[in-house]
């Protein structure tokens, strides 16, 4: 790769973010522990009966992962905003959308992937029926990048404001309704033994769409938030 080319810049950004995350790999545990604790609260609140827990297991795991990602979104742009490297990214000659795509990928790898790794553990704790386990994993593998892409656009919009956590939730959660519906729909269809491919395909289609459009929207949102 010629130095200064787009590919070189993208790999540099990705390598930098992963290196930073690796140096502080303890932070990667926070979303995981958060999801674990929230998932264990449900039996305390609703009682330990297996039948009930099995009924709500998929929804609990999905929403816990969604909320854990919501909390982790703050770390996407804020550190770079504070030390000014985000402005450098804006001024870089390479296309901003691709660079931001790399940052979103790095963010997904460091926060959502650990959550996907422990999701089967959570599902097992909540007695999710066996046939639904692989479908839950597939739904998460398709849903979490979609949430990361969508959330990145909204985090970029609020990059300028401080303490915007609650605002991000108010803006993001209505937009994640379709993702939650199709992911939970796929798993509940699998539990009932019904064909569950259609909702997963919808999630896949939305993911492909978001993969192309979200980085562009994220770049536009960042330009609005930072240099208007």
């Amino acid at each position: 790769m010629r130095p200064g080319s787009t590919a070189a810049a993208c790999t540099a950004v990705l390598r930098r973010d992963l290196l930073l995350a690796w140096r502080r790999r303890g932070d990667a545990a926070f979303p995981v522990l958060y999801a674990l604790i929230v998932a264990t609260l449900f039996p305390f609140a609703l009682g330990p009966e297996d039948a009930l827990l099995a009924r709500i297991a998929a929804g609990v795991v999905l929403l816990t992962v969604l909320l854990a990602m919501l909390l982790a979104f703050d770390a996407l742009f804020r550190p770079d905003l504070e030390d000014g490297s985000l402005e450098l990214l804006l001024l870089a000659p390479q296309p901003l959308a691709l660079l931001l795509g790399m940052k979103i990928l790095a963010h997904w790898l460091t926060t959502a992937l650990p959550l996907i790794v422990i999701a089967p553990l959570l599902a097992m704790m909540l007695h999710l029926p066996a046939p639904a386990q692989p479908v839950l994993l597939a739904a998460l593998l398709l849903g979490t990048p979609l949430l990361s892409l969508l959330g990145a656009v909204l985090v970029a919009l609020t990059a300028g404001t401080h303490r915007s956590g609650m605002l991000l939730a108010l803006m993001l959660l209505p937009l994640t309704v379709p993702v939650v519906i199709f992911a939970a729909g796929a798993v509940s269809a699998a539990e009932a033994g019904l064909p569950h491919l259609a909702p997963l395909l919808w999630l896949g289609a939305a993911l492909v769409l978001a993969l192309v459009l979200a980085p562009l929207a994220c770049a536009a949102a960042l330009r609005i938030a930072l240099d208007a």
């Binding site: 919009l157 949102a221 938030a225």
Partner: peptide
Amino acid sequence: GLYYAIEDRRKAARA
């Protein structure tokens, strides 16, 4: 919510 979260009126409106 987003409109009232950003101080600068023009930037808030655009966001």
